[in-house]
Design a protein around this nucleic acid. Structure first.
Lengths: 288, 288
DNA sequence: TATGGATTGGAATTATTATTTCATATTCCC
DNA sequence: GGGAATATGAAATAATAATTCCAATCCATA
């Protein structure tokens, strides 16, 4: 019988996620006690990895034999091979956050081949996310979102290395049906574009050291027109900070001379989606 | 004898860090084979956690009895209780990384205010980086870099949500003095631009579901001209995959409907910098 | 409500694995 | 260089754990 079943689905789950999916999939059709141990297994995977058949069975409130039948139903030939999957999961889930980063950095520095470059960029991105998650000031976030939510048009200003962030902001704002204008330099008409901005609008400006002179100039002239600016930059001495109504200091780690954009992207998206949410809730209130 | 020793230092290491320190401390004074297993234990803690005394001893090149003596020297009463410490470490360390992300996600879902949006984006980015770090195939990376390094001009093709990545690639390639062409649609001259590409060039194409039709069309026509394509996409069923000489599957987590770009960015930067390095080393060889 | 099949509990059996023991080798000190 | 103390290897033994088996129970169906 269990032989028949094993022959029918030959593909035994080799990794935890597949196993999990299989269990969830069959959940309905499992006998009571088997279902009981199945639920226990998904809730306490560590216990399965480390325990003995007897101890696990006891914790789950079933007999050891039931545990083995459970394994066999899934196509394993016994508890031991089921347990392997749970152990593999623990092995692969690389280490704690810090250990993982250290390992990545070590590989990035010592390692040969191009994998080490990749590890370096992943480490840089993780570090940046970690840092911004610790240092971001909630009040600044709220202020910036309020300011932007009131704007008629949001201008997005960034050059060079910061430009990808600006283009994603513009894309997202567009998706959310929020009027926006990306200040691009293709036709050299930036000055004219900027001239349209009024104090009822707002600007998101992004610039990191070495600050692109064009960004700074444009930020200056737009702020002189009384348009409020939200700045994302990398230091309190940044020239952008002085023009800005609200500004964020984002420390992006770099690797091989190129800075990660992960933290900036996360912040940029939060501002964008935050504005979207705020507009929607304010809209509702107005109607009410 | 071992009793004496056990009496002398009553405090048996209960956690991994203490144990590690103890081993490092005594390293000098340990007999040869014991030192051998000690080194193995610190280098392969996962093996100690999951292996059997016999299998571990074999991997470390000692007898099982030596392993037990090692445990006893440290004050444990046998291999089994030593193993507990290594298992405990896996249990705890795992929870730390998971807890982090789960805490973030929990805050993102339950939390009030805009901070929760931000946490959501950070969690999505972290998850994506984590995933790609696990799944990226080194051989693909090498292949893609070789292919791109040989190209006369690298064309970069991406629209909409993937466009920010393309623009960062173009920026970085420019910085590295690698000839490249970003295929933009401003003037509607894409077809003409593409027509210049020859089999001596190469393309980096990026597209995620729902695939921008323009990207697919352009990828098709450029591949029909015999230009090799490196694709970054999100599934093996992606239409991009069929045109590509090398392709990467990147699973980006999303939040609030916007996908993180962190993993894609890290990969894109690795390709770019990898090509830069490869060119430089090949250039040197040529001179020599 | 009787009957067959599936499911379950619990003990018996088999296997695997840790530990002990003892003979042999090595090291260190006199 | 000789001898005690220490360390090591290998196999025997004890302990522990996985698996099997069979009787009891449950459940659906006629």
């Amino acid at each position: 019988m269990s032989l028949d079943r094993a022959t029918m689905d030959e593909r035994v789950p080799r990794d935890f996620e597949t196993l999990r999916a299989t269990i969830l999939d069959r959940r309905e059709s499992l006998p009571k006690r088997i279902a009981q141990i199945a639920a226990y297994a998904l809730d306490n995977p560590d216990d399965i990895a480390f325990g003995t058949a007897a101890s696990i069975a006891a914790s789950a409130g079933v007999q050891p034999s039931t545990l083995i039948r459970f394994a066999q139903q899934l196509g394993f030939d016994g508890f031991t091979s089921l347990q392997q999957v749970f152990r593999e999961r623990l092995r692969e889930r690389n280490s704690s956050y810090d250990e993982r980063l250290q390992a990545l950095r070590a590989k990035a520095e010592g390692g040969a081949g191009h994998r080490s470059i990749f590890d370096g960029f992943v480490a840089a991105a993780s570090t940046s996310l970690n840092d911004i998650s610790r240092t971001l000031d909630d009040a600044h976030l709220e202020d910036a979102i309020s300011l932007l939510a009131k704007a008629e048009t949001i201008y997005v200003l960034a050059k060079r290395r910061s430009y990808p962030v600006a283009s994603y902001i513009a894309y997202a704002l567009g998706k959310l049906k929020i009027r926006n204008q990306l200040i691009e330099s293709a036709a050299g008409l930036n000055a004219e574009m900027i001239a349209f901005a009024t104090p009822a609008d707002a600007v998101i400006a992004i610039s990191f050291s070495p600050y692109a002179p064009a960004t700074i100039d444009e930020a200056r002239s737009i702020s002189e027109q009384g348009v409020p600016i939200v700045a994302i930059t990398d230091s309190s001495f940044s020239p952008l900070a002085q023009f800005a109504r609200v500004w964020f200091e984002v420390a992006e780690a770099d690797f091989a001379g190129f800075r990660s954009l992960s933290a900036t992207m996360a912040l940029a998206m939060s501002l964008t989606v935050g504005v979207g949410e705020k507009r929607r809730s304010t809209g509702k209130k107005r109607k009410a």
